[in-house]
Design a protein around this nucleic acid. Structure first.
Lengths: 228, 228
DNA sequence: GAGTGGTCTAGACCACAAT
DNA sequence: TTGTGGTCTAGACCACTCC
């Protein structure tokens, strides 16, 4: 029974019936609706809370939690936020924004038939005026049809995509590569210097929403974390 | 009350009273011991189970779970296991094993007074005969006194340390660096080629147990993962 | 068959928030 | 004051394991 109630709540959130921040029915309401005791409802809701799907406020109600796009290591957050969190200034420069035919390889990675039209953006991010990331992003128009009309000086692609295409999952890889000439130029480093490269494929609504390759200068950028 | 029971169980595990795989008292026993109802005991034990501290088997009992050293991204596992999991052959070559004075910087990272004697090992790991990792490790003798007498051709330092010094926590960082000459030689790559460098500090028993820097050739090694 | 965990009930009292 | 979540009780029935 508690699992049925969990499923009911999860389905309601997945369907959009309850959105982030919305109140869901109270324990009493669920008790009546399902004809179970309050302890059973409580267990369902408490577990979803510990799974960070819901948040509860005593005396107030139970709410759908804000989505957290945190990964295993890699919290998917806007690099702008990251820079600001360090008390620094973020700026970005749009190098390219186009709607273009994807290569066969890229089409396969998106799981699309050959020759699909995809959105493609290339942006350089700066921290206190120093380039720290080249973001080379391909976007599935089916997931974010308005991608081309965004103002990427005020919103990062990440921020827009988070809102436009709710994240279902992602796969990523991290590697170290020598900077090719064009990347090196944009990062203002020597050609062939070591870059920390994060590739990430994100999924939304059963489709591959975006594939991004992020190049960082190896000597002034690192991923870090800890655990206990 | 349920929190007191959780604390009691956690303290028993931390103190070594119950070790991995041991049975802990049944719900009935805890009911009597704490003078609470079974639902309260059940909640405490169920939560510790969902936190993967315990495992339960219906009809049998509740056991202390096996420790899982998985990180956020980085499961701390033996590179030997990783290579074998790919169906490949792992081999390692011990380049250096010494007991030596640490630098001031290293001493500070261990939180020790100046001039401590530390163990230091340098090992190259091969996958199918190709070098894929240089492991430069410093070890706190207080945590692993027998480090120097291990046979590192059959056991990786990681495997030994896991057993000798139960892991409490770790911090890590990933960066991309150009290979210095000595590292490049050991990895059989060109000098200044991009390396994927993972640094990790592990803690055990309130001390810094080990600080390791792992160098990987950028073009034939990557960290990967996914989440939903 | 005895003991274990898995689950549910129908109440209860409390702290807190909104009004 | 009313409704919300936070917690606990003292029972109950079940499926399962182990001896």
């Amino acid at each position: 029974m508690f699992q049925r109630i969990k499923d009911f709540l999860l389905a309601g959130i997945a369907s959009g019936r309850w959105k982030e921040g919305d109140v869901i029915p109270s324990e009493q309401a669920l008790v009546k609706q399902f004809g179970v005791s309050r302890m059973t409802v409580n267990r369902a809701v408490r577990e979803l809370t510990s799974e960070q799907v819901l948040t509860r406020r005593q005396g107030s109600g139970t709410y759908v939690a804000q989505q957290k796009y945190q990964a295993t290591l890699l919290e998917i957050k806007s690099i702008a936020d990251e820079v600001r969190a360090r008390g620094h200034i973020h700026r970005s420069a749009l190098q390219l924004l186009e709607r273009t035919k994807a290569s066969d390889l890229m089409a396969r990675q998106f799981g699309l038939q050959s020759d699909p039209l995809l959105f493609h953006s290339l942006i350089v991010h700066y921290e206190n005026g120093v380039p720290i990331q080249v973001e080379d992003r391909w976007v599935n128009p089916a997931c974010a049809p308005d991608y081309m009309s965004q103002d990427f000086s005020s919103t990062t692609p990440n921020e827009y995509l988070m809102a436009a295409a709710p994240l279902q999952g992602a796969t990523y890889s991290i590697e170290a590569l020598s900077a090719p000439r064009d990347i090196a130029d944009m990062l203002a480093i020597d050609t062939r210097q070591a870059c920390l490269v994060l590739r990430r494929q994100t999924r939304s609504g059963g489709l591959v929403a975006s594939i991004v390759t992020m190049w960082h200068p190896g000597h002034r950028y690192q991923f870090a974390g800890s655990f206990t």
